[in-house]
Design a protein around this nucleic acid. Structure first.
Length: 420
RNA sequence: GGGGGAGUGUCCCGAGCGGCAAAGGGGGCGGACUGUAAAUCCGCUGGCUAUGCCUUCGUAGGUUCGAGUCCUACCUCCCCCA
């Protein structure tokens, strides 16, 4: 398979840029792509109000599918399957979410896709189905007779996601055990409704996808295909998408574009080339030039990565503003008015706000106790001057360069505190 | 149904003779070094109106000057026998 050289733009791009982990039939998928007849779906869980960067790889695959004219992308909302819970890749079962929460999450997630895909009725326009549409209407007995009879429990027990739980003596509830059946059925249903013929996903989804292909064969669909992407970790082994502040969300109301830009800006040297290929659409020869930069010069590549990734998710203007704010803050050491701002009542400020409290208000530390410890460690600064006296107060005299005080935790996290 | 074992600092794992804000590690945060990188080294990693006060060891009671540690009941999980 590694020897295969694709003729379609779609598979060529995916191969060159490192999106492909496994494919059930490269040659067949290649043909369909060339004919513009790939109708591909990727399922997205509705377990949180936003997707995070961990899903970016999947989103990019749909985007390339559309961009190369290979066919129609179908981001599938897991409004139904999230009610059951996917055990793949998880050590233990998760609490079931309430249906109201799932629906709220779904609405929030839907908004993300309009930044990445063009929706409509045309041949390569995206559509966004929700498996709650058919899964919640299923009748148990009917489902068992028509779909359930095609599943072999023997085979299901041998699947990695199940085997792992059994071998470690970890609980696997019946509801979770059913998850793969529902996902397999989704594939068949999407074929019936949209002529969907390809399911993509992370490598942990391989088992679920193949189960769907198999079910399709038994239930009389045309041949279906599977294509998975590698599980991404940073060079130092961490999972993608976690930072001090938590997950790197794609929704701007969950994580500000500024923080999103910063996430990409702080990429490890060793990951720059790989990430440029996966998370931007820059030409490969440009990327080769950027990743070859040595020493401190590679920071230029990181800025471009941050700009491109942020532009895609939040728009070019916002990305450029973040870049400019970063330049002022980190390269000039100036106070940029565009840094994230937290407001405090002017009266409170005039009365003299304790430094510790101020940092808690700014959200840079969780408690005054933590603020106190950070002072001891030299981690807090007011207008770039280290805080040495934990009893100090902020007043009008600290309003540097205008209307706000710049509070910093460490060298990277800055907040403007603004009296109103 | 009978017998045995376990639940610890709300990120995780984990030690804990009746004096414990509780060992150690991972993770995280901060500092030094750098390039807003990695690696390395150092510090910190319950809360507060703070030389003291409050809340923490599955839940609820009890014994004791004093309980994570002892007793009782209950909950949850695991193992063995039926």
């Amino acid at each position: 398979m590694s020897e295969f050289s694709p003729k379609s733009d779609f598979l060529r791009v995916l191969t060159e840029r490192g999106y492909i982990h496994q494919c059930s039939d490269m040659a067949a998928v290649d043909d369909k792509a060339r004919a513009g007849e790939l109708i591909a779906y990727i399922g997205f869980d509705c377990t949180a109000p936003s997707l995070h960067v961990g899903s970016m790889l999947q989103i990019m695959m749909l985007r390339w599918l559309q961009k190369t004219g290979a066919g129609k992308p179908l981001p599938l909302m897991g409004g139904g399957t999230t009610r059951v819970g996917d055990p793949s890749g998880k050590d233990e079962s998760r609490k079931l979410l309430s249906i109201a929460d799932i629906d709220a999450n779904k609405e929030s997630i839907k908004r993300i896709f309009s930044s990445f895909l063009a929706f409509g009725e045309g041949k390569t326009d995206a559509a966004m189905p929700d498996n709650a549409e058919w899964l919640t209407a299923l009748n148990y007995i009917e489902f068992l007779r028509e779909v359930g009879r095609h599943f072999s429990v023997n085979r299901m027990l041998a699947m990695d996601s199940v085997k792992m739980r059994l071998e470690r003596d970890q609980e696997l509830s019946f509801i979770e055990f059913n998850y793969m059946c529902l996902q397999a059925y989704d594939f068949v249903e999407l074929n019936r409704r949209y002529n969907c013929n390809l399911q993509m996903g992370g490598s942990d989804q391989w088992g679920n996808i193949v189960t769907g292909i198999d079910l399709g064969r038994r239930m009389g669909t045309p041949q279906l295909y599977a294509l998975t992407s590698p599980l991404l970790t940073t060079s130092s082994g961490a999972k993608m998408g976690k930072t001090a502040a938590g997950a790197v969300w794609l929704n701007a109301d969950m994580l500000s574009p500024w923080d999103y830009w910063q996430y990409w800006r702080n990429t490890e040297d060793a990951d720059v080339g790989r990430f440029l290929k996966l998370f931007t659409e820059l030409p490969l020869d440009e990327i080769r030039r950027l990743e070859a930069l040595q020493g401190a010069e590679i920071n230029e590549a990181k800025k471009i990565l941050a700009n491109e990734a942020t532009a895609m998710a939040h728009g070019r203007a916002v990305a450029e503003q973040s870049a400019e704010t970063a330049r002022k803050t980190f390269e000039e050491g100036a106070v940029s008015a565009d840094l994230p701002t937290v407001e405090v009542p002017r009266a409170e400020f005039a009365a003299g706000l304790g430094v510790l409290t101020a940092f808690v208000r700014a959200g840079l530390v969780a408690s005054t106790g933590e603020a106190r410890r950070q002072v001891k460690g030299g981690g807090l600064r007011v207008n770039d001057k280290p805080v040495t006296d934990e009893k100090a107060t902020l007043g009008a005299g600290d309003l540097a360069g205008g209307e706000a005080v710049k509070l910093s935790l460490g060298r990277k996290r800055h907040i403007l505190l603004k009296p109103v």
